[in-house]
Simulated scan of single mutants.
Amino acid sequence: MRFMVMVRANKESEAGVMPTEQLLTEMGQFNEELVKAGVMLAGEGLQPSSKGARIRYDGSKRTVIDGPFAESKELIAGFWIIQVKSLEEAIEWMKRCPNPFDGESEIEIRQVFEAEDFGAEFTPELREQEERIRAVMAQQN
């Protein structure tokens, strides 16, 4: 099972405050543990929302909304993609994570959909297309 683990932003991360050397060291060590265990597939920190945009869809209409966005507690400051056997295992790994910010922080864990989750609507042709796309992406990395 793959899970996306999201680090919730806070006022400091949205203001562009960079992590301390100590936190970078601790996160580096944690990431090394994840990689050595074969758990981590990807992970990155994200720039503040002031450097981003949202696209709002309404039927065929597209509206671009430039950052920053108001509610920092609803924003994501970073993420991991991990592969483990269960939500419980994902939780156990993330309980070992250093606190992402000084003080109160929050991490959200969400399971990623797999092809089999989509049922009959995900036809053999769509599965083949998905496999081709993944193969090209793997070659590009």
Rank of each mutant, 00 (worst) to 15 (best):
Y57H: 13
M40P: 08
A77N: 04
A9S: 07
V39P: 04
Q29D: 13
L126G: 04
R132D: 11
E89A: 12
A53G: 13
V39R: 00
W93R: 06
K73E: 14
A37N: 10
N99S: 13
E33W: 01
Q139H: 14
G119K: 09
I91S: 01
G67Q: 00
M27P: 08
M18A: 06
L24N: 01
V112C: 05
I107Q: 08
R132E: 14
N99R: 06
V39K: 01
E121L: 06
E108R: 01
Y57C: 08
E21W: 13
E116A: 14
R132I: 07
V64E: 06
N99A: 13
P48M: 12
A37T: 01
D58I: 12
K51I: 00
I133G: 03
G78I: 00
V35T: 14
W80T: 08
F101K: 05
G119C: 10
F79E: 00
R62N: 12
M27H: 05
N99M: 14
A90F: 03
G45I: 03
G119S: 09
E108A: 04
E26L: 03
S105N: 11
D117V: 02
W80R: 01
A37D: 05
V35K: 15
A37S: 02
K11A: 12
G43E: 02
P100A: 11
P98I: 08
K11Q: 09
M1Y: 07
R8W: 01
A115W: 00
D102F: 09
E114T: 13
E89M: 06
L87I: 01
A15C: 12
I55L: 02
D58H: 13
Q22C: 00
E89Q: 09
S50V: 11
G28Y: 03
F118V: 02
A9D: 05
I65M: 11
R134V: 13
A70K: 07
E88L: 12
C97L: 04
L23S: 03
L46F: 11
Q129R: 15
V84P: 07
F101D: 02
E128A: 15
A120S: 13
L23P: 01
K51W: 00
G67Y: 08
N31W: 07
I55M: 10
G78T: 01
N141F: 12
M4E: 11
K85R: 14
Y57R: 06
V64F: 06
G103K: 03
L46D: 12
G103H: 06
Q140H: 14
V35R: 14
F69P: 05
S50R: 08
V5M: 04
E33G: 10
T20W: 09
L23Y: 12
N99E: 11
R134N: 10
S13P: 05
Q29V: 14
L24R: 14
P100N: 04
P100W: 02
E130A: 03
L87W: 00
A15P: 13
E26I: 01
V17H: 08
M27F: 07
F113H: 08
M27G: 10
I76L: 05
L41I: 02
L41E: 05
W93Q: 15
S60G: 12
R62H: 14
V35L: 15
D102P: 10
R54C: 02
V64S: 07
I82E: 11
E108W: 06
E44H: 14
G28M: 09
Q129A: 11
L87T: 06
